[in-house]
Nucleic acid binder design. Sequence first.
DNA 1: TAATTGAGTAAGTGATTACTTACTATCATC
DNA 2: GATGATAGTAAGTAATCACTTACTCAATTA
Lengths: 237, 237
Amino acid sequence: MKESEKSWEEWIEWIAQDYGLNLDRQDRETDKQKRILEAAMHIFSERGFEGASTSAIAHRAGVAEATIFKHYRSKKGLLLHLVIPAISKVATPYLLQPVVKILDQDKPLDELFHEFYANRVNLVEGNWKKVKIILVESLFQPELREALHNHVAKAFYEVASDRIERWKREGRVRDDLPTHVIARSILSIGIGYLLAKNKAFPGFLVQEEEEQELVWMADVILHGIAGPKEKGASSRD
Amino acid sequence: MKESEKSWEEWIEWIAQDYGLNLDRQDRETDKQKRILEAAMHIFSERGFEGASTSAIAHRAGVAEATIFKHYRSKKGLLLHLVIPAISKVATPYLLQPVVKILDQDKPLDELFHEFYANRVNLVEGNWKKVKIILVESLFQPELREALHNHVAKAFYEVASDRIERWKREGRVRDDLPTHVIARSILSIGIGYLLAKNKAFPGFLVQEEEEQELVWMADVILHGIAGPKEKGASSRD
DNA sequence: TAATTGAGTAAGTGATTACTTACTATCATC
DNA sequence: GATGATAGTAAGTAATCACTTACTCAATTA
């Protein structure tokens, strides 16, 4: 069976065997386990996976180093314990539902996109450290990349493309652009804002209050930036 | 003097002193020096800075480990030797010139943006490994982040905002959007395409030939994705 | 040609790494 | 009150880390 053909459940099971990932989220974690995960989140996100030492994590968590290995088997096991539940939450209908709910409202697209961006920006910023770990490490850890591609991205794209095609039929979205271009553009505007604000170049690429920026984002993605003199040039008219 | 008030030249000099960076690019590198830099580029980009060992780099370059330290003083010095010249090239008018040349042509913005995206996509893809190192490590190395922010980003933004404001006056670009929003949106569409194609989710976010994708990118940023039913909703009309 | 210089390296250095072993303390169950 | 089972850890382990020392050799300079 090829890697990419594994279902989410099969993939999780495979990881679980290799790294002792306990999937039963019900069985409550010890106080020390929680503190280890919290410490790991901070140190992984500050120094990256390779730059983080288990001794530093143990020290920050206030436990002996061996305790980490008792619970998580290996350093990589610790990383996956931290990150896989987060990914699996996103892949779950549970976290995809706000998106669906927002996209299915009977409102002008301006308002709808505004709400969508506000919701997703909020989600990412509320979990910035974990998001950073997942994004950076997915560049170096094939398992993570595979997971993001096959499950998170795919799930989102299915929801998105479904709506976009309906909007095309209803004349609310241009039907002369392929669906993937529209989906990518919507995402790009949001990601660009998050990068500019959080990491890259705050100060001159993000200057106003968030509420106002979100309105502009929705405006740009819907109507573009062309002025009256350039409007006729579109192939759609 | 605050970090951010250093000029590019002062900053380079400061780095040079700390890490023995030889700025005189004229004095030709040894064959072995070239091979070390080449090996470092591959291994840094594959494993990240912390994950890359100097012994692995030496092995790949076919030199003794000590040779690396003879030339670059420390592992971090090696990283900066690799990365600073690349950044400084971008900050230089020399590499900014293609952008200026493209943006100052007397053509419809559709064509202009198409050309701009083609040019920048080309540049990034031709130097993908270095770009990856710079982006990832700038998340963890403050010197790199500082350099990108104060010199590359600033330089680009100055060129961009100048043109955008002129276009506003000429009615070629909407004057009801702030300049930074326009600049950010243009960049976002480009970055989104690069991420989708190279790293994140090729396959369903990038499906067509590059030439065609570039046309769509220019189209979306100029005219948006709204269909006839939603067009009236804009605040600009 | 004697002296100097820079490229290059073999063989280390102590520190730190991820991970183990062998142990104690606590607590529920029979 | 003996029996496991689990949580936790002190004190290791071998391997690897970034970096140094002390040297050779070839080319240049005086």
